[in-house]
Amino acid sequence: MKVHVEVKPKSGVLDPQGNAVLEAMRHFGLEARNCRVGKIIEFEIADGTIRREEIENKLHEVSRDLLSNPVIEDYKLQIEG
């Protein structure tokens, strides 16, 4: 099973990295706005390591408590297979 977790700053939280990237885009003549820099975490889980019905809860727990910080970030969880 493949897991794909997307983490990005919450909408109200200032993202200085996003702003710096926006500035750099100007060098390309592109006027953009609302740039948010996040990260993607991908991993695999071997079959049989965890009960099928527990997987989703467990992955949400991991995404919320480890992979993201709910004070400043939102996450999106995708499970394949």
Binding site: L14, N69, I72
Partner: peptide
């Protein structure tokens, strides 16, 4: 301490980067 929830809030990248 913030990550552990023993203090509220979070510390993020310096605004200046």
């Amino acid at each position: 301490l913030c990550e552990a929830g023993l203090l509220p809030g979070a510390l993020v990248r310096n605004r200046s980067l």
